[in-house]
Computed example of a mutant assay.
Amino acid sequence: MTTQTQSLALSNNALAMAVSNPGALGTIEAYIGAVNRLPLLSQQQETDLARRLRDDSDLDAARQLVLSHLRLVVSISRQYLGYGIAHADLIQEGNVGLMKAVKRFDPDRGVRLVSFAVHWIKAEIHEYIVRNWRMVKIATTKAQRKLFFNLRRMRPDGHTLDPSQVDDIARELNVRPEDVSEMEVRLSGQEMALEAQHDDADGFAPITYLADEGQEPSRVLERRALDDLQGSGLLNALEGLDERSRRIVEARWLQDEGGATLHELAAEFGVSAERIRQIEAAAFKKMRAALSEE
């Protein structure tokens, strides 16, 4: 058994578990030290293992490809330590991207796995950061994601951008100036707890001044008045009409489906359509007067 094979065999249990949980080896430093001791694969070894995985679905070959590239994930994840997310979490998500890359890798394209995997590792880390950096998702579109991962680096000394700087960044990243300004505002914003965090706080928290306007007394009274008008008020107004006027209003406007036309009611009462329209107008005027007295 070669030295490389022995090293990979010894790593089988501990590091295989650590792929999904970098803290499984005790500390993140222990994990990084362990993956850095794993030997690299030659191009021929990598190609042979990839073919075994592609042609025979050999999971042991996939394991060796993943383990030999864990140090790549560690290296890439260090680039994203400034987002306030634990290094172990970044490595864990990067490992997910590495496994996706191994699954899709084609050894016959003449490209090394390390080059192919970089995109997948970064994509998983990017998605995790965007999803967890703030309680409210800060970037959803492609342009917003591009700005999220570039704007902090491109802002001079972290200061507010002036219009010319906004235009320069928009031109360089091929996005709209409005998108640059909007993302700058989002990055500058801070989350605020709805309620006071401590018992001795001065109470000036959003919960003290944000109100449900729907429960304001005047709104409640308005809804009650509207319900009355649509219920008993309407019935009382209809009862104040003569039989013919009430029949015309009900047939025209209070049917579940397709009210009667002026001509249909004209035929029913033996008068002209214009006369039906006049009766209807007079009935509405009388009903409005009755409702205003409610």
Rank of each mutant, 00 (worst) to 15 (best):
R153V: 05
P206Q: 09
V271P: 10
G23A: 08
R153A: 06
D167S: 02
K122T: 03
E216F: 06
Q144L: 03
E191K: 09
E172D: 12
E213T: 13
F284G: 06
I28T: 00
H87D: 12
Q44Y: 09
G82C: 05
Q215L: 14
A225F: 14
Q64R: 15
M99F: 08
S7E: 14
V73I: 01
G233Y: 09
L229M: 15
S188E: 15
L254F: 09
S164W: 03
I32D: 13
G26I: 05
S68H: 08
S42D: 02
G270V: 00
E191T: 09
R63F: 07
S232W: 08
G214N: 11
L65V: 00
V66N: 07
H126E: 01
H69N: 08
D162I: 05
I85T: 00
G158E: 03
E264F: 07
D212R: 13
R152M: 11
R244W: 07
L194N: 06
M154I: 01
T140G: 13
D202V: 02
L226V: 14
D58M: 06
S42T: 02
G203R: 01
A237P: 08
R171N: 05
M154A: 01
A30E: 09
S218V: 14
L65N: 00
V175W: 06
T47L: 09
R63K: 04
E264K: 04
R52I: 00
T5P: 09
D55K: 15
L241K: 01
S232T: 05
Q215H: 13
A260K: 13
E29P: 12
V114P: 10
V66T: 09
I125D: 05
V185R: 15
P217D: 03
G23N: 15
F149I: 00
D227Q: 11
E191L: 09
F105D: 00
G94T: 01
Q64V: 14
D167P: 07
D167N: 02
E294K: 12
R171P: 07
D108G: 09
L235F: 09
A170V: 01
Q278V: 10
L234S: 14
N150H: 04
R252K: 14
L234Q: 13
G110H: 01
V220W: 05
H159W: 11
E280L: 04
D212K: 10
A283I: 02
L41M: 00
I28V: 04
H87N: 11
H159C: 10
M1Y: 08
V166Y: 04
R224A: 15
L151T: 00
L53E: 12
S181Q: 15
E213A: 14
A205Y: 07
S218E: 15
V66W: 10
K103E: 08
A170F: 04
M192W: 11
M183D: 03
Q215T: 15
I279G: 03
